[in-house]
Design a protein around this nucleic acid. Structure first.
Length: 296
DNA sequence: GCGTCCAGGTCTACC
DNA sequence: GGTAGACCTGGACGC
């Protein structure tokens, strides 16, 4: 790497919180150096037709510094980085929605609410599938295996997330035995084949004009994607209408708002209903408040 | 070291 | 629409 690109960031943008406000930074090909506050990532360039490593860090004066290879296309790098860190996402309406609620007064002050996402919707979809019905530890194992065993290698080290084509080229047994995906194995293969054949276009969901309910139905057509997974992906697409309830969020809600007792999901829905289309982001901020208090 | 149990979200069959 | 059981893994636990 020898070129440095700078891009300006909004006033309410905090690099460390934009990276660590969501667990994705812990999944390859992301590598986060907490001490240096630098985030490395490898994306597959559609222009140079090869994996391009980037390293992001704060540059001062509201700028983000990006270290890239000499061969990388600067405009493509900027586009990918802006997408990953959601630099162009306008959270003003979210901040004004939560501003009137005492428990959320910290949210805007600490620039919370930017959820790190991958370079492509396909990558986020596969990673979301890796989060279903398993521990975070197993999610990391499956993601690491996918990158290590199927991702295109960078000459200087590191790998990109595998393409749909490379996933489609492997038998189901590969996902079962090498990725440790278990019963999800046929789902990975089916997804890779559908995207590689052009029958499914996850990237199109990013700018879909479908109402969220309709888009959720489309996303749920992917085998292995249910309510939680679809709503989680919708959050990464910038739609926060759904809570994406999983056991971790439910447990956090019981602890914080229900005297550590389990309750029906409807009660959780009712609690966040006041935040309207932002309720999915509101519950995420509410449940991760301690992360910010710990200095993330 | 081995066996057992559990958590985790979705699918399918069934009512 | 709601429910039960199966799916599969890693980790915790007891022996």
């Amino acid at each position: 790497m020898s070129n440095t690109i700078s891009i300006p960031t909004p006033n309410n943008f905090n690099f460390r919180r934009a990276v660590t406000g969501h667990g994705w930074y812990d999944l390859p090909p992301f590598v986060y150096d907490e001490a240096a506050n630098k985030l490395s990532y490898v994306f597959y360039s559609t222009l140079t037709r090869k994996p391009e490593p980037v390293t992001l860090g704060e540059g001062g004066n509201s700028n983000l510094h990006i270290s890239v290879s000499k061969t990388a296309d600067p405009d493509e790098v900027k586009r990918v980085v802006r997408h990953i860190l959601r630099i162009d996402e306008d959270l003003a309406d979210f901040y004004s929605t939560v501003a009137g609620h005492d428990a959320f007064c910290w949210v805007e002050a600490l620039n919370a609410g930017r959820l790190l996402r991958s370079g492509t919707v396909f990558e986020d979809l596969v990673k979301t599938l890796c989060t279903t019905n398993c521990s975070w530890g197993l999610t990391k194992i499956m993601t690491a295996n996918l990158v290590a065993k199927l991702g295109k290698k960078v000459s200087g080290g590191g790998r990109a997330f595998p393409s749909a084509k490379s996933m489609a080229s492997k038998p189901e047994s590969f996902f079962r035995e090498e990725i440790r995906a278990g019963y999800r194995s046929p789902y990975f293969l089916e997804l890779g084949e559908a995207v590689a054949a052009g029958k499914l276009d996850p990237e199109g969901w990013l700018h879909s004009e479908l109402p969220t309910d309709e888009l959720k139905k489309e996303i749920k057509k992917v085998k292995g994607i249910g309510d939680y997974a679809a709503e989680n992906l919708l959050k990464l697409l910038g739609r926060y209408d759904g809570l994406a309830l999983d056991s971790w969020l439910r447990g956090g809600f019981y602890k914080k708002h229900n005297r550590e007792k389990a309750c029906p999901d409807k009660k959780i829905e009712k609690h966040y209903k006041r935040f309207g289309k932002w309720k999915g982001l509101a519950i995420w901020c509410d449940m991760t408040q301690s992360w910010f208090e710990e200095g993330r």
